[in-house]
Structures are given as C-alpha cells and as structure tokens.
C-alpha cells in the first residue's frame, strides 16, 4: 500500500492505495465518486475523463499514485456551490447533446479541455478534439453543437 494525498473536487484526501490501483478505480471505489465511469479496458472510450492538474486525462490510464499531490476535478465538481452549471454542462443540456448520458461525464470534461486550448474551434477541430471519446447514442452532431455553443459563451 502506498500513501497518497490528493485533492478531488475541492476536498483533500489522504489515503492508502495499492500501487496498481487506477485513478478511476480510486475515485469510484475509495472516494465514491461514481459520476466518473468506466466504459472500456483499453483506454479507447474516454468515459473516464477527468481533469488532473488542469489537463484532461483518461483516469483509466493514470495510476492513483501518479495523482499524489495533485488536484483532480471530476464531473461532480463542475457545478458551482449554488448548483449553477458549468457552461459546457449547460450547453449539453440546451443542445440535447446526450441521450443515455453514459459518455457524458467524459465528453463534458473533454470539451472543456478542448475549449481551454482552443477557445474558438472550427467544427473539424471539435470533431478531431473529441476523437478520443466515444458516444454510441448521439451521432456526435449535437455534442459538436454544444461545444460550439459553449465556445460562444466562453469567448
């Protein structure tokens, strides 16, 4: 077991983890942060995407010990204290960018990251930018729209 200190959605945790524990499993199983989900076992689907120290990562590709001393934001930490939504969350709702919602936590985190790096992306840049996140329900069109709408709000 290894000791880690990590801040998740604004709360500091000090925990013992097995060295092989993936960040996503630490979040889900030890912290109960089940808003972040697992959709694959080959790092292809992006459902597990979270922010680690200001960059989006697939939390199934990061060991919990690698997050030691770091700061993680998950889908559960995006809304403000009064429940006001992050502009990307709001845009997903407004643009019907989710159906079953399973890919949605990862998609929202990926779109936020994309807009951080490129506040005014073209449609193609959005499509390329979220290529690592799979959605089986929406055909992506409304996710692209949501990203464009959120870019409009943010810029």
């Amino acid at each position: 077991m290894t000791k880690i200190n990590v801040k998740v959605d604004g709360v500091s945790y000090a925990d013992e983890v097995e060295p092989r524990t993936l960040l996503v499993h630490y979040l889900r199983e030890q912290l109960g942060k089940v808003g972040t989900v697992v959709g694959c076992d080959t790092s292809n689907c992006g459902a597990c995407t979270v922010d680690l120290d200001g960059r989006s990562v697939k939390s199934c590709t990061v060991l919990a010990v690698q997050a030691d001393g770091g700061e993680v934001t998950t889908i559960e930490g995006l809304a403000g204290p009064d429940g006001e939504l992050d502009p990307v969350q709001q845009a997903f709702h407004e643009n019907h960018a989710l159906q079953c919602g399973f890919c949605t936590p990862g998609m929202i985190m990926a779109v936020r990251d994309l807009l951080r790096e490129n506040p005014n992306p073209s449609e193609d840049e959005i499509r390329e930018g979220i290529e690592g996140n799979l959605c089986r329900c929406t055909g992506y069109q409304n996710i692209v729209r949501a990203a464009q709408a959120a870019a409009g709000v943010k810029s």
Partner: peptide, 19 residues
C-alpha cells in the same frame, strides 16, 4: 423541450447499476 433526464446525467449524479 429540453430533457428532464439531463439534470442528473450532466452532473454525475447517476445510478448506473455499477454505481
């Protein structure tokens, strides 16, 4: 209409069976 379902899905307050 925007969907009623979205509120819990976009905030991660989900009840997937594995959760």
């Amino acid at each position: 209409r925007r969907r009623k379902e979205d509120a819990h899905l976009i905030t991660g307050r989900t009840r997937w069976t594995d959760n």
